[in-house]
Amino acid sequence: MIRTENLTKVYQMGDAEVYALHDVNLEIQEGEFIAIIGPSGSGKSTLLNMIGCLDTPTSGAVFIDGIDTGKLSENGLAEIRREKIGFIFQQFNLVHTLNALENVALPMFFAGVKRETRLKRAEELLANVGLGDRIYHKPSEMSGGQQQRVAIARALSNDPEVVIGDEPTGNVDTETGNTIIDILEGLNKEGRTVVVVTHDAEIAARVGRTKRMRDGRVLD
C-alpha cells in the first residue's frame, strides 16, 4: 500500500545540512496497523508528512497504491490527500469558525460532493465516533477528546484507504486516548491501513507492528 525508497529529506540550517530522513526504506501492507516510535527529532513526523503527501522528499520516492507521488503535481498530491488519506493531527487542527458538522463536511466540500449528501454523511460519521449530539458545537465548545473525535470523523469523510495519525493521543488524557485507540483499531478492522506516530507505549503495545526511528533512520 505504502512504500518508501531511499527516502531522504535534508533541511538547510544556515550552512549546515540536517538530515531529517536518511535513506528510509519502509513498506506498509494494505490493512496493516503500524506505529512509528522514537524520540523527538528522530524524523517520525517528517516521515509521516511524506507518506501523507504533505511534504516532498529531497531524494528518494514514496509510492502510494503504486503511484510515485514524486511525479504528481501539486493538484495531484491534493487529490491523493483528499481521496486516499485521512490525516489526524496532534493539535486536532479543526477550523475554529466552523461547527463539528461543517468541519467534517469540509473535505467533501473540496471533493465537490453535493451539499445534502455531505451533511448527511458528516452526521453519520460524527454519530459513529459518539458525537451525534454535538454536531452543531464549535471546536471551542468541546473538550480535547471530543475535538480529536471530530478530527477522526473528518479524516474519514472521503472514505480513505489510509488513516495517518501524528501523535493522535498526544493532547488528550489517558482515558480519551484509549477511546481514540479503540476507534483507530476499529478502522483497521474495517480494512483500512492505519499509520501512527506516537510516544505512547500503550498504542505501541496494541498495534500489530512497530517501527523504531532514530536520527532520521528506521531501525530494524
Binding site: L54, E74, N75, R82, F89, N93, L94, L106, P107, F110
Partner: peptide, 16 residues
Amino acid sequence: THEIGVMKAIGAKNRN
C-alpha cells in the same frame, strides 16, 4: 496560514 495548511492537508487544491 495554519488554517490554510489544514485545509490543504485534508485535500483542498490550490484553486479551492
